[in-house]
Amino acid sequence: MALAERAPRWVENRPSDGWRAVDTAELWAYRELVWFVAWRDVKSRYKQAALGVLWTVIRPVAGTAALILVFRRLAHVPSDGIPYAVFALAGWTAWSYLSGSVESVTGSILVNGSLVTKVYFPRLVAPLAAVLPGVIDLVIALAALAVLMAAMGVVPPAVVVLLPGCVVLLAVVALSIGLWLATLNVLYRDVGHAVGFALQLWFFATPVAYPASLVHGPARLAYALNPAAGAIEAFRAVLVGGPLRADELVVSLITTGLLLVGGLACFQRLERRFPDVI
């Protein structure tokens, strides 16, 4: 290692044309920047600390209360044998992390515009850092969920140890969609506005307030094409139990994988030109 540092390597800057692979070694070398950018966002997000933390508790609780009222009391939506409040709060927790991350990934290049136009760093640092701050809200919501589960006597299954894996999956889903949007957002600023609306529609296409088991027949696999469907069902299944169909998860994983590869390719192809356009 020391030797490699002694003999500095040449770095070339030439016109990029065509598709470029992700330089994982370089990205690894910049891992601390990912942390710092994320930390900076956390700090500015919670600068009014008392209210900030309070909000992260109020939001999932109020959101879940609304879901209970609309989907349970009015529409009598089933919940795979799990108390609906627990079912909804678990779904809400996963969804708000996912949708919040998609939004911050979308804006990540523009938010860091002053950096992008003035220093070099692998541009992927920005979207990667954008999925981290939401984890804090997620953990706080999980704490609220733990209290609720204890109160209602719901015991998490043994597979709950896989929960971190499910959170990573949610982050990957957010990136797989967000990388496309982040790239588009540099080109067309109105993408940022459209995202909020699209997320509202996406909410109804995703098993957050209702279980995927409500969808019957061949439509069910088509439903699983939604990358968020598999991730959220998996998150809820490891946390509070309930059925999880392997074929659905696989379909969701495949769409996520394809979207991620495409999004990365698109991002990588255009990132060198970001500084000239921002």
Partner: peptide, 30 residues
């Protein structure tokens, strides 16, 4: 400093490049 890429030709640098294009780049007020 690799902030932007050339339209033609090539620029090579050896080792770590530190650039001071603008003082205070990356500072965050909070």
């Amino acid at each position: 400093s690799r902030v932007t890429e050339p339209t033609a030709g090539v620029a090579r640098t050896r080792g770590r490049v530190g650039s001071l294009l603008e003082v205070g780049t990356g500072f965050h007020p909070e």
